[in-house]
Simulated scan of single mutants.
Amino acid sequence: MTETEPLAFVVDDERAMLDIVTFALETQGFRCRAFTNAERAWTALQREQRPDLLVLDVMLPGESGLTLCKRVRAQGNLPVMMLTARKETDDRVEGLEAGADDYVTKPFHPRELALRARALVRRTRLRDVEEIVRGDLVLQPLTSTVLVRRTPVTLSPNEYRVLLALMTHPDETLGFAQLLAFAWGENERIGARELVKTAVYRLRLKLDAASTGGGDCIRSVRGVGYILATDPDPAPTVTEP
Rank of each mutant, 00 (worst) to 15 (best):
T2P: 07
T4F: 02
V10R: 09
D13R: 10
E14A: 13
I20C: 10
V21A: 05
V21Q: 10
A24D: 03
G29Q: 10
R31T: 09
R31E: 14
F35I: 02
N37K: 11
R40K: 13
T43C: 07
A44T: 08
Q49W: 03
Q49R: 14
P51D: 04
P51S: 10
L54D: 00
L56F: 08
M59Y: 04
G62H: 12
E63M: 15
E63C: 09
S64G: 11
G65C: 06
G65N: 08
L66H: 04
V72F: 05
Q75T: 08
L78A: 09
M81I: 15
R86K: 15
K87W: 02
D90L: 11
D91E: 14
G95K: 05
D101S: 12
D101T: 03
V104I: 15
T105F: 01
T105N: 02
T105L: 00
P107E: 04
P107M: 07
H109Q: 12
E112T: 13
E112H: 01
E112Q: 14
L113W: 09
A114R: 02
R118Y: 01
R118G: 05
L120V: 00
L120R: 00
V121D: 04
D128I: 12
V129N: 09
E130A: 15
V133E: 14
G135I: 09
L137Q: 01
L139P: 04
L142Q: 15
T143W: 10
V146Q: 04
R150C: 05
P152W: 11
T154M: 11
S156D: 13
R161N: 14
V162Q: 12
L163C: 06
L166W: 01
H169M: 03
L174T: 00
L174H: 01
Q178D: 13
F182H: 12
W184Q: 08
W184P: 00
G185H: 11
E186G: 05
E188C: 02
G191T: 11
A192S: 12
V196W: 01
V196I: 15
K197Y: 10
Y201R: 15
R202Q: 12
D208A: 01
S211K: 02
T212W: 07
G213W: 07
G214V: 07
C217F: 05
R219L: 09
S220W: 06
V224E: 04
V224A: 06
G225Q: 01
Y226E: 08
D233P: 06
P236K: 00
T237Y: 02
E240Q: 13
P241L: 04
